Amino acid sequence: MTHLTELYTNAKGTACQCDRSARIMIEFGGYKMAFKINDFFLFKCKVDSVDLHAMIFNLSDEYDFEVIEAPQANLSLKLTLCDLVHLRDLLAGAKFMIELNSLLYERIYNVPAYV
């Protein structure tokens, strides 16, 4: 019996919620990461803070990729512009589903959710 609930999937990865460990599991481009819920939101903010406009319009080689640290998962990701767009989509979809699940739980059981 699996304890993973799929939250969101796109062409580059999958986001799942583990009921046993209360972690968000991200598989993206060959990387596997597990985050506590608060760490997931911090990681999402870090990914969202990358200036995609600068990456698009700056012709310097240093803007060809961005290095994102995920210390909670002991990873350092080297991502291209396309990778960043896909990762942002994956994280946004997962965040939406987490918030939706929390809202439904709160409404159905009339108790505050954890998010």
Results as ranks from 00 to 15, higher is better:
104 L>F: 13
61 D>I: 11
17 Q>C: 02
99 E>I: 00
7 L>R: 03
45 C>D: 13
14 T>R: 02
89 D>Y: 04
53 H>G: 00
111 V>K: 09
4 L>M: 06
108 I>V: 10
45 C>M: 11
7 L>M: 03
52 L>Y: 05
28 F>P: 06
76 S>P: 00
87 L>A: 05
70 A>T: 03
36 K>L: 13
46 K>V: 14
67 V>F: 12
104 L>Y: 13
15 A>Y: 01
110 N>W: 02
69 E>L: 10
46 K>M: 13
68 I>Y: 06
20 R>P: 01
16 C>Q: 08
94 A>P: 07
85 V>I: 13
86 H>Q: 15
2 T>G: 06
106 E>S: 11
28 F>Y: 03
102 S>Y: 08
88 R>Y: 08
6 E>V: 04
88 R>W: 07
99 E>C: 03
38 N>G: 01
78 K>A: 08
34 A>I: 01
41 F>W: 09
97 M>E: 09
5 T>R: 07
61 D>M: 11
4 L>T: 02
88 R>E: 06
88 R>P: 08
67 V>Y: 13
21 S>M: 13
14 T>A: 02
4 L>Y: 01
100 L>H: 13
108 I>E: 06
53 H>N: 11
106 E>D: 04
95 K>N: 15
34 A>R: 03
88 R>F: 05
74 N>Y: 13
57 F>P: 02
106 E>N: 04
14 T>S: 01
19 D>C: 04
87 L>F: 03
61 D>W: 07
82 C>N: 13
2 T>N: 11
50 V>S: 12
11 A>M: 05
102 S>E: 15
27 E>K: 02
